[in-house]
Design a binder for these strands. Sequence first.
DNA 1: TAGTGTATTTCATCCTCAACTAAAACAATC
DNA 2: GATTGTTTTAGTTGAGGATGAAATACACTA
Lengths: 296, 296
Amino acid sequence: MAAPTRLQQDIADRILQLVRDDALTSGAWLNENQTAKRLGVSRTPVRAALDHLAEQGVVRRHLNKGIELISLPAVGDSARTPEAIELAMVKLAHERENGLLPDEVSELEVMRRYELGRPEAQKLLARLADLDMVERKPGYGWRFLHEPRDKRLRDESYRFRLVIEPMCMLEPGFHLEAAWIAEMRARHLEYLQSPWRESSSIAFYEMNAAFHEGLAAATGNRYFHSAVRRQNQLRRLSNYDWGLGFERVQVNCTEHLAMLDHLEAGENEVASALMRSHLLRASKLKLGSRQVDEAD
Amino acid sequence: MAAPTRLQQDIADRILQLVRDDALTSGAWLNENQTAKRLGVSRTPVRAALDHLAEQGVVRRHLNKGIELISLPAVGDSARTPEAIELAMVKLAHERENGLLPDEVSELEVMRRYELGRPEAQKLLARLADLDMVERKPGYGWRFLHEPRDKRLRDESYRFRLVIEPMCMLEPGFHLEAAWIAEMRARHLEYLQSPWRESSSIAFYEMNAAFHEGLAAATGNRYFHSAVRRQNQLRRLSNYDWGLGFERVQVNCTEHLAMLDHLEAGENEVASALMRSHLLRASKLKLGSRQVDEAD
DNA sequence: TAGTGTATTTCATCCTCAACTAAAACAATC
DNA sequence: GATTGTTTTAGTTGAGGATGAAATACACTA
């Protein structure tokens, strides 16, 4: 059978998610129409996704009767493959940090260097431009906007976040879902209890990003949300190769948990103050050799 | 002769700007190499631009000798043609505001409706997505993220700016160029002294945007700058067809001028407070029939 | 009738080719 | 020797076609 499309893979994952949410068990029957409607998509990709799931033995098709659920795979089994563009972006940022890239690059150079098609290279550069990392030169080519390992950049980022993030929880409409708090707390506790491995640094960064982004989203104000998301994207580029000690992880998690506690208790001013000091402390950390940036 | 390229037109304008900055007069000689270097561009487009200027009688080429300046056209003579994409964006935003566009559009529909090529339509949609105005649907097409004339959106924008902009002038590195202050002051005074015409509303908006963006740029922090610029772009879409009264223009200019005064005197805290009340006042204005948004 | 199976249409992406533009190298002239 | 004129090379953009995927409409089955 044909390889699954990005969308089909995505739909397949979301179908499994729906099945879990509805607490369906083996033997349950799925409905193409409803599924398609719930996912906001036509039946075509849903059918394709179901075909793929059938191949994996998760469901079984019965001719003209429907789809039977056979066995539900474990959560997180489908190892989301990050997009090629994402990978290339991280790689590019990394090479730039280490002085392997000149101050100016052409589109073609990006294509060759990271083995991308033209549209992909264009998207990549557009996204970097959006993050204020590069800009178009007047004629051809692109120019990096700051030096590798620019300390000023990091300071600027913290100063910006210091203005934005503590204000989030003071916004009028600020509201956190109880479920979100619970999930965040669980994820943080996991890091406190299990031993730290270098390999978990990417997942740790993502949890951090989700924490800060979630707080911004809770304002209900899309501009706060998108400003924080933008900062996260930016930091993601340089932070994927952290060298991070367990103490730092511990401090970070503890501070996050404290904020969650106060927010749950409705003490938003306290949480706001905590956020401020949290960011201040992070901004003052000395940078280790491999520590281009750190947790928050 | 071939029609001037976007870049060539741009270079031509900037050459004239350089000539003015250097206070060159008729009879002066221009140097291709230096010009190219100053503009950060190769000689090729500079030559082309000079050819176009020669056609218009601004300069004259002497074979193997150089370029002689003949007559300097008046400022603002070259009516900057905004990019086709810009125009289409404004038009699209306008139609959307007036309910002429459905909640979902396809790329092709954008191409047809605004007579754009595919790459242009893609760029347009990408930029709208960047401004959080639309998002990709899972399958095909794009979806508008908010209702036309969404009041909430406007409130959110003000709340965000209320957090960001007053903090700009309190940032450690904040520094305004004296020349910038002088120019801004002059432009504002012009609006106070000359009678208000409906036709000046676009120019008025641009002055406003330049004011706020300039203050953000003065922080030396690119994140403040880019956050404010983003807000300006967003507002530009819905604000180009203002219906604005002279009183509002007057109040707006007066407040801006007061801020400039205090900033010049080093009283940044005062200016910051003024900015806060400035934004608050603007956010509380009642919206007139055509007043989708207002000055600040 | 409510659902799946099938076909058709619309849409988007990818690719390649052609045209053109800018950059860089070289030649010619003052 | 510096500056302009010319050529060469590299890079980018735009247009059309092929491919494949999603949306839609229709047919079929329980």
